[in-house]
Every structure is written in C-alpha cells, then in structure tokens.
Computed example of a mutant assay.
Amino acid sequence: MDPLTEIFTQMRIRKASFTRLDATAPWGFVSKGEQAVKFVLVVRGSGILTAGRNFDPIPLRSGDVFIMLDDVPYRLFDHDGSQMIDCVDVEKLRVGHRIELGGGGALTTFVSGAFEIDALDAQPLLDVLPKLLHLKLDQNRSLAFQSVLELLAAETEAPGLGSEAVTSRLFELLFVHAIRALASHPEGPTHGWLGAVADRNLAHAIKAIHAEPARDWTVETLARQAGMSRSAFAARFKAVVGRTPLDYLTHWRIYRATRMIRKRGAALAEVSRSVGYESLAAFNRAFKKETGRTPGAFRKEAVREAAFA
C-alpha cells in the first residue's frame, strides 16, 4: 500500500459546495482567503491568478486547474485594468449554484468548489503539498483525470437529482488525481514522502512501511526493499524525506495510532500492538515524543472535540 492510498481510504471531505461562474470581460474579483480546500477549473476562456505575496501572476487557460490548500488571499481577473469586486459582493449575485458577472464581453467560465477535510487525517498531505497547485492542461494529464474534470463540468452545467452528492464524490476524485498528477510530473515534489514515492528505489521502502507498519523493520531490511546498500539508502532517504528511515516509521505508526484512537475507540493496548509496539510503555513514550501528549490525554481531547462537533 502506498501513502496516498492509505490517507484517502479513510479521509472524507465535508461541507462541499460548488459554483459555476460565468464571467464576461472585463471582470475581476478578490478574496481574503477561506479556511477550506478550494479548487477552480477553467472550463472556457482565460484569466490571471495572483495569490499571496510570494507568487508571480499565473496565466490560466481553458482546461487548467488550480487548488489552494490554505486560506491564501488571491485575485482572479481577465486583465490588469479590470475593476476588482470583493468575493463577498460576488456571492450576492448567486442564483442557486450559478453566478454571472462582468461587463458583457468575452466569456470565461469557471467551476469552483470548496470543501473541508479533517486536519489530522490530511496532515501527511498538508506537510508535503504546496499551498497552491497549478495544473496546466497538457499531454501528461491522464485520461482518468481529464474524465473527472469533464464529468464535473457537465454536472455543474446541468445539475440533476443527487447532484450535490455526485459533485462531492467528484471533488474527492479530483483531489486524488491532482496529487497523482503532481507526483508524476517531471518538476513535481522532490522532498518528503511524496518525493520518496516518485523515487524508483525509495518508493519500494515507503510502500513496504505502509503495507506492514507493525513489522520490525530495520534500516538493513528497508534498504533491501529499495535494492540499495544500507549506507546509500540511509543517506538518500534522509535527504529526500527529511527524516531517517526509522524516524519516518515511528512518525507513520503514531499517525495511524491517532486515527485509530479517534475513530475506533480501541483500547490503547490494542492500538499499541497494531502499530508495532509490544510494550504499552514504549508506545506511550513514542506517542508523547511525536505529539507532545500521552495517548490517554489525546483520547480525552478527541472525546471532548467530538462532543462539541
């Protein structure tokens, strides 16, 4: 099992919403950002995106997708001279899932969506992904990814019975395909576990850890999985992932443990054994070192959060 499969197996999106926006030139709007995962597909036309303070203007064309993983402020417009409207005022133009704005010139159509994901579930993704992903329409886009985008555009063009449920599922597929596209791109991530998955040697070790996290792995046995010498493997793993192989193993074990404690209500001794610790004391030490809390304290906090959710 690879990390992305494990993360998405249990992760679900919440409070999904979508909008089909028809903007006729001249047009422009500005957002202060929002606490949600936000994506935009350019169905037709073109535009310019600026986000945060450290990003250069990004030209957008039909078929492009961008995804924001944080509350990054941004501007989206057809040209520099366009008047900017605050997104709060843009929302006032909404009729159902559609918004129309602009001056009546050339048409640009966007399908945008926003959804929430549990921060703990998604932490491994948030740790390695950039705040802004821009995926251009090019020959490297898989047929499956393109099919999801076309389904999404069609569903928002003519919503039918159960449309919100369909769109929510398409958001999940879009998110997975976007990350896959990023990981497979020649200029994709080179660090973190996503960088390791893209490394033809390290990928075998990463997948082995995720397939059997409770196994008594050593640097030597993981190096054999990668088909490398112990020293070369240890050096490359640390350079790419940012952790030693055994530190990464501990990190992933504790991540799995936090999810089990929150979602299953399993006894701590059972959780400890399932992630590779025969001794509850050793599990407690590793858990506290990784999270700053004992498993018991973490459980109490999770119960409290659930009660007020």
Results as ranks from 00 to 15, higher is better:
114 A>V: 01
146 Q>C: 11
211 A>G: 15
210 H>C: 02
120 L>H: 11
119 A>C: 00
139 Q>R: 10
160 G>M: 07
207 K>G: 03
147 S>I: 00
146 Q>D: 14
133 L>N: 08
231 S>W: 07
167 T>K: 09
209 I>P: 02
237 F>H: 05
111 V>A: 06
224 R>C: 05
196 A>Q: 02
157 E>S: 15
213 P>S: 10
157 E>L: 15
191 H>C: 04
196 A>K: 06
116 E>Q: 09
236 R>M: 00
207 K>M: 11
160 G>D: 04
206 I>C: 00
113 G>R: 05
197 V>S: 15
219 V>N: 00
195 G>W: 09
184 S>R: 15
229 S>F: 03
118 D>M: 00
115 F>G: 01
186 P>C: 05
132 L>S: 07
114 A>I: 02
235 A>K: 12
138 D>E: 06
194 L>H: 04
185 H>R: 06
164 E>I: 15
238 K>Q: 11
219 V>M: 07
142 S>R: 06
243 R>T: 14
178 A>R: 01
146 Q>W: 05
119 A>W: 00
136 K>T: 12
129 L>T: 08
175 F>N: 10
198 A>M: 00
109 T>R: 10
138 D>S: 12
135 L>W: 10
155 E>K: 07
196 A>L: 01
111 V>L: 07
187 E>T: 04
158 A>S: 13
215 R>G: 06
211 A>D: 15
213 P>W: 08
176 V>C: 11
192 G>F: 00
185 H>S: 14
236 R>N: 03
236 R>P: 02
111 V>H: 05
194 L>P: 08
147 S>M: 07
237 F>K: 02
127 D>P: 01
232 A>Y: 07
243 R>F: 14
147 S>H: 15
162 G>P: 12
184 S>I: 12
105 G>V: 02
113 G>Q: 03
176 V>Q: 12
237 F>P: 06
216 D>H: 15
158 A>K: 07
128 V>R: 01
227 G>D: 10
139 Q>E: 14
206 I>K: 00
116 E>C: 08
193 W>D: 04
201 N>Q: 13
150 E>K: 05
197 V>R: 10
130 P>R: 09
125 L>R: 11
229 S>D: 14
208 A>H: 12
204 H>Y: 13
148 V>N: 01
213 P>D: 14
233 F>L: 00
185 H>M: 04
178 A>L: 06
215 R>H: 15
240 V>T: 02
189 P>N: 10
223 A>E: 02
128 V>F: 09
241 V>I: 13
168 S>H: 13
171 F>I: 03
188 G>T: 08
210 H>W: 14
131 K>N: 11
151 L>P: 00
127 D>I: 03
132 L>T: 14
145 F>H: 08
231 S>V: 09
222 L>Q: 06
185 H>W: 06
208 A>K: 04
204 H>E: 14
188 G>W: 03
130 P>D: 09
